[in-house]
Design a protein around this nucleic acid. Sequence first.
DNA 1: CTGTTAGCGCATTCAC
DNA 2: GTGAATGCGCTAACAG
Lengths: 340, 340
Amino acid sequence: MAATIHDVAREAGVSASTVSRVLNGSAPVNEEKRRRVLRAVEKLNYRPNALARSLKKKRTHSIGLIVPDITNPFFAEVAKGVEDVAREYGYTVILCNSENDPARERTYLNVLQEKQVDGVIFVTAGANEGDRVGRLERGIPVVMLDREIPGIPADAVLVDNEEGAYEAAKHLLALGHRRIGIITGPLLLSTAEERLEGYKKAMREAGVPVKPRLVKDGGFTFQGGYAAMHQLLEGGNDLPSAVLASSDIMALGAMKAAEERGLRIPQDLALVGFDDIMVASLVKPALTTIAQPKRQMGQLAVEMIVERLERGRRRAKRVLLRPKLVVRESCGSGRRSDGA
Amino acid sequence: MAATIHDVAREAGVSASTVSRVLNGSAPVNEEKRRRVLRAVEKLNYRPNALARSLKKKRTHSIGLIVPDITNPFFAEVAKGVEDVAREYGYTVILCNSENDPARERTYLNVLQEKQVDGVIFVTAGANEGDRVGRLERGIPVVMLDREIPGIPADAVLVDNEEGAYEAAKHLLALGHRRIGIITGPLLLSTAEERLEGYKKAMREAGVPVKPRLVKDGGFTFQGGYAAMHQLLEGGNDLPSAVLASSDIMALGAMKAAEERGLRIPQDLALVGFDDIMVASLVKPALTTIAQPKRQMGQLAVEMIVERLERGRRRAKRVLLRPKLVVRESCGSGRRSDGA
DNA sequence: CTGTTAGCGCATTCAC
DNA sequence: GTGAATGCGCTAACAG
């Protein structure tokens, strides 16, 4: 059986409170007793029970992280940022994979609450968890990350998706493209919606009409991007000369589809992604994309929770980060081949 | 303030014990009171406090997962497997990124113990944590994953690395290569050591001497693989015609280096990886590699912990999974590439 | 400075 | 069936 604070107290010939005091430095303790306590701790290999402490102090020093899929490099990067500063502040992170399943998301929200986490970082799968989050939020700090739920006053760390997609589309337009397709994410996600908006805005400004036929939902997955690209490439005429994929993963799927159709990138088709995950620079041609500060997003989210917890901030805060166009090879130099 | 079991008891006009009984089904309760309790729970939006329960029951239903780097696709896949079955069994997972830092690893081992996790899944960075793990292991089930620490009786989920590397090398030999280089991981990791062994064994059997000059440590990182390949390619003569990289990440780095040297893969240089992460099938040429059952490894690890916890297993168990050669394009075998 | 007392919120005897 | 009492291991008053 693991030693308790009382065992240590007995071994050192002092009271449990004294042991607690030396271990937490919460009050001055006679030097002699202090040494005895430390020795006893050593001898018994004593480790305080964090459960008991948390129960008493009403602080668990743990935060929950809910993501749709940890194997998605975007979320893995975010998670790393989260874990990293959480550790610095003495917090532990509970990893929750929602698998894009609203039910699972809901379950986790409850579990985290029961486990008394000090805060939650929530990348929602888009289900309408507004009520639940709102209710939870009254007791526990919640930071929405990457995706917003409209109408709740929780903190949020977001990227200016409209701006990002706008830049991406403008890049394509500047290269002379006019028939530009877009593979969107699920439009119930603010993120996907905003990227579509940015695309439309750029098209509008350039005086190019947006054709519904060139807008396909790729569900933010590799498979979805693959299927969407095939759809875009169906029907002999009216084909896009460029495609904006709303995530790198989808861009990769799209690339595979284009390849299967015998299209060369960038000669026959220009392609832009979104996220800048590591693979983007590794594939051939290297993917031009909109980079997001993934690591930083995770870091900021933790800091926002700590601010509320340790510095008592009350007002909701919303951080909007700027994405950045990274030009690589998948859009070519700008001369679009008309004939090929 | 969150409602407690006493609030519910008062609201329902019963004792706290009764509330506990209906919530846990631990004893029969009068139907009428039962309804009243349930109603009260609803009304007060009561959530049991898992800390208090855990303190009492000495079970937290949480397990710790220590990995070197969650952004490494290999570990992300493992983590997904872990999370997935942990959730099924009602466990929560605490994510710990050691960043390959022994100090951090040590800290996490302690933190997990203090948080009273019911088990630990440990992918060690290779520091000699034997003592610590051994001591911990006496109180908490520990499963070593992917990497072993010799001499401790903990459970382990491993892959037959020697066999995998042996197959990889034989593949290269069968294609007629004789000057085969290897990029290893840090040799203090059992994993890296065993892969090197497999390579040597294949070479020996083929009667090809192993030249130290063709053995380079790539540290299991992209950068390391890149640097190692540059070293292998230095010095005009005595160059390898094929290279076995002990991880896909390193293979990718190696690919970049080869490219910089103007070498075409597979025409000028054959390359095999290890792991079969998603990117492997996406790069060009698609990477021939040794696939590991990543997801399954995570799943098994959790099951081994649950076995000890809920079915009282005592004897240490060691599972050795078989890796599998996946032939794609990077060795120019002429066979069709396969998507896996 | 230090020991004693009193909970944190729950599950579990133990009587009734 | 059910309530009262007890304690999980710890920290925080409260007296000295």
